[in-house]
Amino acid sequence: MTMRGPHFRKAHVTEAALLDHVEQRLNDDSHRDIQRHLADCHRCRSEAADLLRLVEDLRAESRDSPPPHLAAWARMIPELVAPRTRPGWLKLVADTWADLAGGALASIVSLQPTPMLRGVDIPHRAGRRRLLFAAGRFDLDMEIGYPGADDPRHIHGQVLPVGQTRHLWTDCDVHLTRGRAAYARTRLDRRGEFVFPRVLAGRYHLTLTGPAPARTPSFEV
């Protein structure tokens, strides 16, 4: 039984080395040493099997998670089912208009709507409508929910990086504008998502500020 080297302690493989082994992060020599040891050591073999199961269970979590837009929708259920009283709209509109007028949105890039859906395929169903906009470095994936004919709609969106870009610009405001008037403002969260929980029917466009300012064409809500 091989028992010497940095991966062994008291005649057994260390937990860290077993983990590297099951995740195939060791070099060939270390991998072979541990493999030989496992052939003879029931305790380490059982430990390796437990670790492998844990790692696979964790990976399965990401594989089997609901699509982000559904998870985001579910998180909003308390607001959708029992809407709160309206926020201070006048202040919100005044603040937003002040930002817009202050030139915060200089050098805007227009987002182009694209017929192709990227990532999770979300079908158009009764009560929901999905829009996807593309702007080169990122896509804006947006869903409009219609809880009832006369109820306020909600808009949920996510900024998705394109290509090798991993970092989302979460330091970014999202402005909803109706016609030429500022309507509401929110902020991207750490997942690059945003929500406008109560939006009245009308024609709107969205503007993103931050490192990559952009504006959508107008769309019907």
Binding site: L70, I77, I122, P123, R125
Partner: peptide, 14 residues
């Protein structure tokens, strides 16, 4: 399918 799974997901969450 994804669409039906979404329907179940929404119904159960609600």
């Amino acid at each position: 399918c994804e669409e039906d799974a979404a329907e179940v997901f929404q119904a159960v969450c609600l």
